[in-house]
Structures are given as C-alpha cells and as structure tokens.
Amino acid sequence: MIKPIIAIGCVLGVLFGSLVLLSGSARAEQVDPQQGSKRLPRVYEGAPPLIPHDAETRKGMCLACHEFGIAGAPITPHPTRNDFCIQCHVGQDLSVQTFPPIPFQEENRPK
C-alpha cells in the first residue's frame, strides 16, 4: 500500500523538481509572478522557509518532493503536517516591492 504511493510520489516529485529546475518560474496566486528556484532567506532564525516556486497549483502535492528531498527539495521535518503546509509556507512574487510602493501623498486623497 505504502510502496506504490512512494513510487508515484517519486515520479511526481522528479516531474515537479525538473519543472522547477528547468523553467525557473511557475504560476502562482498572481498571474505573472517572478519566481526563482533558489531557496529564499528566512525572515529570522526559526521562521518557516518561504516557497520559491508556485504553491497554489501544486497544493496537496508538497510531500511528493519534500518528503524525501527529491530534486534537491528541502526535506520537511514534519511530514505529518501535510494538508496544511501552506498555512505557514507561502509563495513569493519577487517582482513585488515594499508596500506602500509610493510615499503617502495626502494631496491625492481622499477623492
């Protein structure tokens, strides 16, 4: 029962891993996000790692790569917390800059 799941997981994992490596970007929450394949720095020591690839369309499949570290994916230290990985680990559109993008201009508001 478990072996076929691992096998399928591995196949999926290799598939997605190569996707990440080859394309370097993928679809995310926003339509044209700019994403890399490199690990992003943590916000502080102890903060959950950020996701450098699309997470939305691959939801429910995290363990395919992250259970055994397929294609260089970091191995999760808590594999039983599947089904809610994305409540702590979130994707990033690196083209987006700090908010607010322009200084607060009172003159323009309120209309």
């Binding site: 926003q30 994305i86 979130v90 990033q92 559109d93 700090t98 908010f99």
Partner: peptide, 25 residues
C-alpha cells in the same frame, strides 16, 4: 485571505506577506 489581516494595514507592511498576495484579484 490567509496572508492579510483585515484591511492589510499591518500585514501589507511585511514584505513576505505582501509578496505572497500583493493585490486582491
């Protein structure tokens, strides 16, 4: 959405949260 608190006044100032959901589609 998960990443933003109500009107985003606080959470949009956190770059990682802003980059996760930069606007409301």
């Amino acid at each position: 959405v998960l990443e933003h608190w109500h009107t985003g006044t606080i959470t949009r100032r956190v770059l990682e949260l802003h980059r996760a959901v930069p606007f409301a589609p």
